[in-house]
Write a protein that binds this DNA or RNA. Sequence first.
DNA 1: TCCATCTACAACCATTTGGTTATACGTTAC
DNA 2: GTAACGTATAACCAAATGGTTGTAGATGGA
Lengths: 129, 129
Amino acid sequence: MVVDGVAEEAEAGTDRLFQALADLTRRDILRRCARDELSVSRLAEAYPMSFAAVQKHVAVLERAGLVVKERRGREQLVRTDPEALDRARRALDELEAAWRGRVERMSDLLAEAPEAESETRQPTEGQSR
Amino acid sequence: MVVDGVAEEAEAGTDRLFQALADLTRRDILRRCARDELSVSRLAEAYPMSFAAVQKHVAVLERAGLVVKERRGREQLVRTDPEALDRARRALDELEAAWRGRVERMSDLLAEAPEAESETRQPTEGQSR
DNA sequence: TCCATCTACAACCATTTGGTTATACGTTAC
DNA sequence: GTAACGTATAACCAAATGGTTGTAGATGGA
């Protein structure tokens, strides 16, 4: 449980990350705020929905760590965190490692048992890929 | 509209992709089914929830194209599609391109206008922040 | 000071999501 | 053939999501 604490939080963070990315409006906000720093109202003008709705989308992105808000006077400037997509990518890498793991194990089989393979497909066959 | 048709579907697909990844149980299913092909009931044994719940998770993964089901006798074997994570990665790349674009444009500014920039904000003015 | 602007937040609503149980159907084993 | 197994699907429920409107608090400019 104690050890799980950190892992659980990491997984919850991954949940929030992908969840935040799973919406077209939010992905578009990310694109816009990657190019420029935009205030929330400026952003809101771009979408066919209320200011409050856009504000909520920004909040979701912020909780996911994809975006950072910086106050300037009465407006709040939004910019996407360049490091954030790296985290997303790392999450994918971690998933991919699972079946890279499978490949490794297959290599292990081939490496550790250089002879006596009766059940794997014959080398005589023109091998697939 | 006609042109949008394909883009819309692509974006909807991206929604489903990230949505499917935004759940710990589903990510775990992906890991397990990357290593081995597992039947749905076999999978269900691994989680503290009903068979039907796991079945729904698999359905979400399938709709997102992250997983493929193959019938063998009375059981349905699930395996993750190796190509799927590539699609997720490509979606991230497309997002990242947005601020790679920003960097390019900044380089462009520096490269194309080595002098005579009158309309960008003056370094001399203590600007209004 | 007064007003317009930008933001925050609450209350509400419809739909989706993640779970449950129950039931029905096809397949395998005995 | 019958029983056990694996799957599919429906009906239901609570909570989360994506949207709305309304109200109130700061801030900046006239």
